[in-house]
Each structure stands twice: as C-alpha cells, then as structure tokens.
Design a protein around this nucleic acid. Structure first.
Length: 848
RNA sequence: GCCCGCGUGGUGGAAUGGUAGACACAGGAGACUUAAAAUCUCCAGACCGAAAGGUCGUGCCGGUUCGAGCCCGGCCGCGGGUACCA
C-alpha cells in the first residue's frame, strides 16, 4: 500500500490549480467580491515562520471565501525599499537593487511550495520603477492639492560619519557605527499635511466596526485630541524682540500653582538667548540626545534658569522664572509650558531639584495637607476643593474646572481656548538612496519646481557606490543635473527620497490594477476596494494603518479612489508575533554577537561549533539582526507544506504571540498521515454499519464548529474540532456510505488549512473535480439540536451533581427535579434554601 | 517616561459571566510484533485518600455577583508602539 507522500502529491496539486487558473482574481460583477490581504513582507532574503503563519491565515480565509462563491482577490508583493539594502551595500559592495531583487527571488522560491492561493500575476515590488513612478505621480497630485509642503525639522546627525541616522541607528545617544554622540540638526523637509485631517481620522475610527478595539484605542490616543488654552505670559521686560511667551495648557485650572515657565531648548526664545554662552552650552548639551520621544522622555530632567521673568496672567504682581527644560517638546503645543509642581509629578521632580516653590491649586475634599514629594493628581472626574480660585470655583471636578477656567480666561482676554491634536504632520523626506526619489527640481530662479508627469518615473541610477556614508545621489556625477521643468535653465534634482511608509500606504490600492498607467484604474478600484479582510502584525497598529487611512483620503481627493474607499480596510485582524529566544555571545570589544537557533545547543547553552558559552536572552520578535529566526524551509522539505501549514494553524490563537518550539511539527505530520490512511481504508469498511445517524450528527456539528472557527479567526479551535471529529470517525462503526461522506466532508473542512492533502483525499474517494472548486458544506440545523441536555448542579457556586433533562423542559419542572436530587436534599439539611437559580440549558445553582 | 496588550497543568492552549483544563505535545502503562519502527487502547492539574470523595487551583492583592479565567480597582512580570527599523 502506498503512503502519504507530500513530496510528490503537493507539486502535483499545485500544478493542477495553476492549470485551472483558480487563483487568478477575476473582476466578475455577477459575484460578490472578497479582497483578502496580508501585509506584504520586507524582502529580507528568507521567509521565517512568522510569514508562514501570517500567509496561511490569509490563505485559509481566501480559500474559504472562494468556496462560498466569492470572486477573491488575494495578491502578494514586496515592501522593497529601506535601510537594510543600503547596509548590505555598504557591507558587501552590492547594489541595493541587486540585493533586493535577489532576496525577492529567493523568498518567492520559498513561498511557492507552501501552496498559497495567491494571484501571482499581480505581484510587484515597491522598488519597481513602474510602482514608484506612480507614487511620484501621487506626490505631484498631493502637491497640487496642498497636501504636501516643506518646513524645517530636526534629524539625528552623526558628526563623524557626516550622515543622518535613523532612530534605530542611535544607541544610547551615539551613532551605531561611529560611536560619536549624535547631534540634532535642522533640515528643510517635505511633510504630508496629515494633521489637517486629525479630526476626521479620529472621528472615523468610530465607524471601524471590524477593527480590534485595542488598535482603535491606540490610534485615538496617538491622534490625541485635547481641549486646552493658549495663554500668553508677558515678560516682565522684553528680551530679544519677545515680549511674551505663549504656553499651551490642558490644565489651566491649576494656574494658581504655577511656579515657573519652561521652554524647549529648540524654542525661538531659547535660541535667541544663545548669545549667552551658558545658554548656548546648555542647549547644545540638550541636543545631544536622539530625536525619539522615548529618548527625550527618559532622559534625566534638566533645566537652566534664563534669568527672565514673566508675569502671572491672573496676578500680574506675581513673577515666574523662565527656565529652559530638556523635557519640553518643541513639536507639541507651543514648545512652552507653565510648571505646576503640586499637580504634575514631572514638574514636581523638577521643582524639588531646582528649589522652585510648590503650591497647591486644590486639595482633596476634607484635606489641607500641602503636596510633599508626591504630586496630587486625581482623576479628572473626581471632585476637588479649589483654593481661592479666580474663576470662582469651590468644589468641582477638574473636568468642570478646566472648562470654567477657559471660559473665565477667554472672557477677560487672558487666553484662547483651543482644541489641539498630538498628531504631527508626517515628514517623508529621507536623506537616503534606496527609496522613491522625490520628484522635484531646485532651480536657482524658479525655486522648488515639480517634475513634469511625462518625465516620470524619476529612476534611481545604477552606477552608484556605497564606499562612504551618506546618500550616493548627492555625489553622483550627473544624476542631479537636469533642466528646470519650468524655465529650462540648468537646475538640480532633489536627492532626498521618500519614507518607506509612503510605499506601503497605497499598495493595497495598486493591487486592484497593478499595471495601470495611472496610480489606479477607477473601475477596478471601484469593484475590488475595500480590503474586506486585512491581516498583519500588531506592530503596525498605529503608523502604517494611520498613514494608509490618510493616503486613502488624499487619493480620493485627487480622484484616485472612490469616496467609499477612504477607510480602505473594512476588517482588520492583528496576528501575534512569533517570538524566539535570542542567543548571544560577545566579541573582544564587548559588542554582542548573535547566533542562529540551529547553531547553538540551547540546553547546554553553548555554540555548537566552538563550545563557547551563550547568554540566552528571553523571547523577542523574530528579526534577522538578532538571528532568532526559525527557517520554515526545513520543515517543508522534511514534512511537506501541509504539515507546516497545519502546525502554524494549530494550538496558538492567531492573535496571540507564540513562542516557537520545534517539537510538534512531527506530531502534525503524523496526524495528516493518519487522515490519509483513514481515507485509503474507508473503501474496505462494511457496507452496512451501526451508528450512521450518530456519525452524521457529529459531522454536521463539525461543519458548524469549523466554519464558525474560520469566520471568527479562531483557526486553532477549528483545528481542535477537526481533531475531535477525526477521532470520532476513526472509532465509528458506521457503514461505508456514511463513512465516505464523513471523510469527504472532513477533507473539505481541512482544505483551507491543508489544501494538498484535501485534494488527495477528495480524489481518493471519488470526489468530483477539485476540492478547491467545491462548494463549502453547510450544516443542517436540525442535526445540531440535541434532545437532552446535562445540567450541572452547583451548591453555593460549587459543582456537586448533575441532572439530564429533555432540552425543552420548563424551568418549574427542572426546579422540581433538582429538589429531588440526593445531593441537594443532603445539603438542605445544613440550612434552608435561600435561592434557586436555573439557567435553562446551562446550569443550576442552589444557594443555601 | 507615556500609550496598548498579554499572564490558565510539565508544554501549546480551550472555555456567549454558568461543569476550568476541550483538542494536542511531551510523559506513563498496555496491545500488536522475533525485535524495533509504525499503529492502536488506556492513564494523566496539585495535594489528601484504598476507594467513595474532599481541599486547593487560571501571575499577586482586593471588589462586584447566586456564580469570575472572563467584569471593576490596585500591584508584579513579559511583550508591542513611541513618529527616520519595517
């Protein structure tokens, strides 16, 4: 007898699907469409088990929807621009383009054997000139609509390598290669006006019914709508042309306790004061941290007294010192805040450190103890007792206090109530080579001139070297030199390229017409958009998804997407990450060296080849740089694609992070072999058997449960139900007909997860055509109803007994039966019945 | 620092506020076999007990409820994001 042999059967069925053209997305108005999309991968060179998990989920959905009569679009592409290609170019002298396309080819070779139902005819990479040329066209359209503009912004500057660093490349405030302390430097950069849409992006979140609540919450917090007031604090004497400092505050009700003003080191006034060497030195020192919010917030709070004073807006005789504080962000509000130490822990720490006064603005009701070393920060909904408040507040919540204060201040011209957002405009300029060139030209006479659309794509040159840090476009001998598109005089191209988030902010739209001569084809976009189910990592919960939502709106404004597509993702599923331990040793200079899981012995904690002891760092997201990746190719070549697919769908709930362990792949394979064996044996079953009805009931229950599991993204539960049904079928004494029907249905229900095995079993039992084309089975509701039900009986909340009753027995009848129960009778001897709770079909609780 | 999650047997995990541990992995016992592999059957949260059964038990502490893994408050630990990693 032959055996389960995926090595020969899997390629056979893949060929059959290919020849039938099953996975080609067809625009068919007679069918409901379904667009399922997994976030496309960065072409690092090898797929890892996290990719397999991600794409198998999408494939299960795609195959399931195909079998329920939908025209399915399930595409794949490559997020191909980005830093790693440039790093490889620096390290290995290979052009980023060659590196990237070689990686794409390698990853595609690894993905193909997994048998995903992808329409490969729509594949593209974001580094294809055809793609980024259309992106450049979008940029020009956005520019025309005023959706993109230029302003100054700070970047991380490596003073040794003379290059701009990504936040990731700044480690403890130092450049990752040079080790030099980074500086902040101002450059003129392009920005998308995303903040102009902050209100709409926030409000529209309410309509995202099929997004996870946690993602919606994260986006709401990120956008960060706040109600506050801008208050000008008059300087006691004008300085450097400033006669006031404007502060934005969301807590004006604490103004009584204001004891100092703090301005950002990047505030115009702070810069003006740099004629004082002490200020210049302090500001320079503050700028020696990275630009990331995390670095700024975690840095020790430091300040410098400028010697300037401002008048308290309500009590002008009260003078407050003006400090420069490294904790004040220039990007938020006005870059200046008033400090109220009594009601803000950060301000309190600062005040204690520099000996500034601490004065309460309110107390908790009934208390009068002034703040010590812990700031008094009650919930905004908790009532507090204000101390001689100027707006006449006595006992009120902060919520009420803030509104009243704003009204009072506005009425007296002391400030302007405002609604502000935390969301900042999206800086898209990157001083790097491997990205889409920004299609503008700098002309000495005309200034910044947009490139003409007929000149697109503006291609990246092939003849570049990476033998010195920085952007090779800057010193390419000819690339920059172009005639001005407006006046024709010699001019220079912009050498900045676009943030890679731009690439991934519209690829989903491009998949609807990947070779259109414009960014999109209106008819195709109208048919296929929106993405019905988007699947990707939780790490993209904020930036990628928010930028895509912005882009869809902007594309709609420019006529590239219908109004119905401004929220491009109808449903979102965020799968957990696959994590793994990290194995580390250190080199002579103490820098960490990482080792692949297959190169170490995790039990003995040594590197296999050298015997060197390793440090085991707890699990983290798999990443190439940490080398904690697991290669699925080995599992596929050892056991076949279906085993790998079955394995990643089993056990772990898809939304949860999963710690990868190699054990279990073998077990998955054994199970699939068992199913195959059962199928091949079913023809030898006796014609007539007993329990056909029972088997059919179990089958319909399984259909119901597996379908529910797939619909609800609980693939691991579907798999568990399939295991249970397989056990039932294996033990069943039913006749051949019933068994064959059960087996065929089992194959169908397994087909989204293990499509090759399902075809094999389907064919073995004489199924018509391909299982991939068969209609999804439907559960007969009549077969799901049980006649009787077993109710547990709890006594005081603890399960003590049970009764089996007809399914539709009335509450009264159940109560009567419960009182007859031995356990209940015995328990009632201890005391009288207090309460009897009967939840029909569920449980009985006797309270004594 | 701030925002968002997660935490259940030896392991992965299941469980509309209603029998905690389904389904698996690893483990143990047995059947088949000359033997092994493969396969099949059974056992299995911890503790007490010969058994019947009992006590405890979903990171920790408290609360709501007839009833909490699930809801609320406070901790601890781990993870993600933090605007130039993708």
């Amino acid at each position: 007898m032959s055996r389960y042999d995926p090595a020969t059967t899997e390629p056979k069925w893949q060929k059959a699907w290919e020849e039938a053209g099953l996975f080609k997305a067809r625009h068919d108005p007679s069918k409901p469409k379904y667009y399922v999309l997994e976030m496309f991968p960065y072409p690092s060179g090898r797929i890892h088990i996290g990719h397999v998990r991600n794409y198998t989920m999408g494939d299960v959905v795609a195959r399931y929807k195909r079998s329920t009569g939908h025209a399915v679009l399930h595409p794949m592409g490559w997020d191909a621009f980005g830093l790693p290609a440039e790093n490889a170019a620096i390290a290995g002298g290979i052009h980023p383009k060659d590196w990237t396309y070689a990686n794409i080819a390698a990853m595609k070779d690894q993905m193909k054997p997994l048998g995903f139902s992808i329409d490969w005819s729509r594949e593209f990479a974001t580094c294809d000139p055809e793609y980024y040329g259309q992106q450049q066209a979008l940029f020009l359209d956005f520019l025309e609509k005023g959706l993109v503009y230029r302003k100054n912004a700070v970047v991380n500057w490596d003073p040794v390598d003379l290059t701009v660093l990504a936040n990731e490349q700044v480690i403890d405030g130092k450049g990752w290669r040079s080790g030099a302390p980074v500086e902040r430097r101002e450059l003129t950069q392009w920005f998308f006006r995303i903040s102009a849409q902050a209100g709409d992006l926030l409000d529209a979140i309410d309509g995202l019914d099929h997004w996870p609540e946690k993602v919606k919450l994260m986006q709401r917090n990120w956008i960060g709508k706040s109600r506050g007031i801008e208050i000008p604090f008059a300087l006691s004497a004008p300085a450097h042309g400033f006669d006031a400092v404007a502060c934005y505050s969301t807590r004006p009700d604490t103004l009584r306790g204001a004891s100092f003003l703090a301005i950002s080191p990047d505030h115009p006034l702070a810069k003006a004061l740099e004629s004082d060497p002490a200020v210049a030195e302090f500001n320079a020192e503050c700028r020696k941290t990275g630009t990331s919010e995390e670095a700024l917030e975690k840095a020790e709070k430091r300040g410098l007294d400028t010697g300037l004073k401002v008048r308290h807006p309500v009590w002008p005789d009260k003078l407050l010192p003006v400090w420069i504080g490294n904790f004040v962000l220039m990007d938020y509000g006005t870059g200046a805040v008033f400090g109220c130490p009594a009601h803000d822990q950060r301000d309190l720490d600062f005040a204690r450190k520099y000996g500034l006064p601490v004065e309460n603005a309110f107390f908790m009701p009934g208390q009068t103890e002034p703040v010590g070393d812990e700031a008094l920060v009650p919930l905004k909904s908790e009532p507090v007792d204000y101390i001689d408040h100027f707006a006449g507040l006595t006992r009120a919540t902060s919520e009420e206090g803030i509104e009243k204060t704003i009204d009072w201040m506005e009425a007296r011209g002391l400030g302007t109530g405002q609604v502000r957002f935390r969301l900042r405009d999206w800086g898209l300029s990157r001083q790097r080579f491997w990205g889409a060139p920004i299609p503008v030209v700098h002309c000495p006479t005309c200034g910044v001139v947009p490139e003409k659309k007929e000149n697109l794509p503006i291609r990246l040159p092939d003849d570049v070297t990476f033998d010195r840090p920085g952007n090779p476009l800057d010193w390419h001998p000819t690339w920059r030199d172009v005639p001005c598109p407006k006046c024709g005089a010699p001019a220079q191209r912009e050498t900045d390229t676009m943030d890679t988030f731009v690439d991934s902010s519209w690829y989903f739209a491009r998949f609807t017409a990947p070779h259109a001569k414009a960014p999109t084809d209106p008819e195709e976009a109208a048919y296929w958009m929106n993405v019905d189910q988007y699947i990707g990592g939780i790490e993209h919960a904020i930036l990628h998804l928010l930028y895509s939502r912005f882009f869809a709106r902007a594309m709609h404004q420019c006529g590239h997407l219908p109004a119905s597509a401004i929220e491009p993702f109808d449903a979102l599923f965020t799968q957990g990450m696959v994590t793994h331990e990290i194995y580390q040793t250190r080199d002579a200079s103490g820098r960490p060296v990482y080792h692949l899981p297959e190169d170490v012995d995790p039990v003995a904690k040594i590197v296999k080849a050298t015997g060197e002891p390793i440090e085991v760092i707890p699990s983290a997201k798999m990443s190439k740089s940490k080398k904690n990746v697991v290669d699925p190719v080995e599992i596929v070549s050892a056991y076949g694609a279906d085993t790998a697919r079955w394995f990643v769908m089993s056990d772990s709930p898809p939304e949860r992070d999963v710690e990868w362990t190699a054990s279990g792949a073998d077990a998955a394979n054994r199970h699939l072999a068992r199913v195959w064996r059962m199928a091949s044996e079913i023809n030898n079953a006796p014609e007539r058997g007993s329990g056909d009805e029972e088997l059919m009931r179990a089958m319909h229950k399984c259909i119901h449960e597996v379908t529910q599991g797939i619909e609800g993204f609980a693939f691991n539960v579907s798999v568990a139900k399939l295991y249970a049904f397989t056990n039932t079928l294996a033990k069943s004494k039913a006749g051949r007909g019933a068994k064959r029907e059960a087996m065929q249905t089992l194959a169908q229900l397994m087909s989204p997860m293990v499509p090759h095995l399902a075809e094999e079993v389907w064919a073995m039992l004489g199924g018509k055509g391909l299982v991939a084309e068969a209609e999804w089975p439907e559960a007969d509701p009549a077969m799901l109803v049980e006649d009787s039900v077993t109710l547990p009986i709890q006594i005081n909340g603890k399960r003590r007994s049970e009764i089996t009753v007809p399914k539709d027995m009335s509450k009264d009848q159940i109560e009567a039966l419960v009182m007859q129960d031995d356990w209940v009778k015995r328990s009632l001897e201890a005391g009288p019945l207090k309460k009897l709770i009967v939840v029909p079909g569920r449980i009985v609780n006797v309270v004594i």
